[in-house]
Structure formats: structure tokens, C-alpha cells
Design a protein around this nucleic acid. Structure first.
Length: 123
DNA sequence: AAGATGACGTGCT
DNA sequence: GAGCACGCCATCT
């Protein structure tokens, strides 16, 4: 079975440009219901080589969960805008932009036991 | 080892 | 909407 972190990374990697997913949604799809905090934590720990679309993950209220003072706030907002996702006052219309996963693609990604990233020596 | 922390969620005032 | 209380749990002090 895949490690929880990797399931999260794989789910995030499937989010299509122009759409967003919530932390809770990602957690649930990764079979980790209720553990949305782990999604944010582990996304930040993902190897940069994965180039995860972390900017497409926002909170359940449709808000960018990063302080406006952080440089990452603007990076996230700019990337969403560049993909055509409307962001007003740090808020995204979830009804309009929520990602609907392709179930087959999702199952394949989570069932494939081959690690999708390499890390020398560890685990 | 024990307590605090947090890119969160739900539910209730 | 704005707070607050909890639940969650890997990491950091």
C-alpha cells in the first residue's frame, strides 16, 4: 500500500489546470477523511521534482489559506488567474471551479504501487 | 517527554 | 460574515 503522503501527492497531481480542489476533498480522495491538515503539511514536504500544482488546493471556504503578507499568497493567486480561475479578494467560487476527478484515472494512480518519485536511500 | 503549532474542516453562536 | 470550540496528527520546541 502506498504511503499516505504519496497518495496525497498523486491526487494533487491529477487536479486539472483551471480548476481547484479543497484540502478536505484531497484528503477524502486520498482515503484520509478528516485529515485535511495533513494535506497542507505534506504538500509542503513534497519533493520539488514532483512539481505539484499546490496552487490549485484551497480551503473549504474557497479562500487561499496563506497570509496575504506571504510571497506564496501572490504566487498562488497569480497562477490561478493565469489558468483562468477568478480570484476576488483571495476567494474562489467553488461552485464554478471545483475539480471533479476522473474516477478511472484516480483509481489507477492510487492502485499503482510504483513510487512516483525517487529518493535516495530513504524508505 | 510534554506542549505548542498549523497552506484545515465542521458545526455552532 | 466573524468568532469560537473541537477534531485531526505529524513536526517542532
Amino acid at each position: 500500500m502506498l504511503q499516505p503522503e504519496e497518495r496525497i501527492w498523486r491526487v494533487v497531481g491529477l487536479i486539472l489546470p483551471g480548476y481547484v480542489a479543497t484540502y478536505g476533498q484531497v484528503a477524502a480522495l486520498a482515503d484520509l477523511p478528516g485529515r485535511s491538515r495533513m494535506v497542507s503539511r505534506w504538500m509542503g514536504m513534497a519533493p520539488s521534482s514532483l512539481s505539484l500544482p499546490w496552487h490549485r488546493v484551497i480551503n473549504s471556504r474557497g479562500r487561499i489559506s496563506i497570509p496575504k503578507s506571504s510571497e506564496f499568497y501572490s504566487i498562488k493567486r497569480d497562477r490561478l488567474l493565469a489558468e483562468g480561475v477568478q480570484v476576488l479578494e483571495g476567494v474562489v467560487n467553488l461552485k464554478k471551479y471545483t475539480w471533479q476527478p476522473d474516477q478511472v484515472e484516480l483509481m489507477f494512480a492510487l492502485d499503482n504501487a510504483e513510487p512516483c518519485w525517487e529518493e535516495k536511500g530513504s524508505r
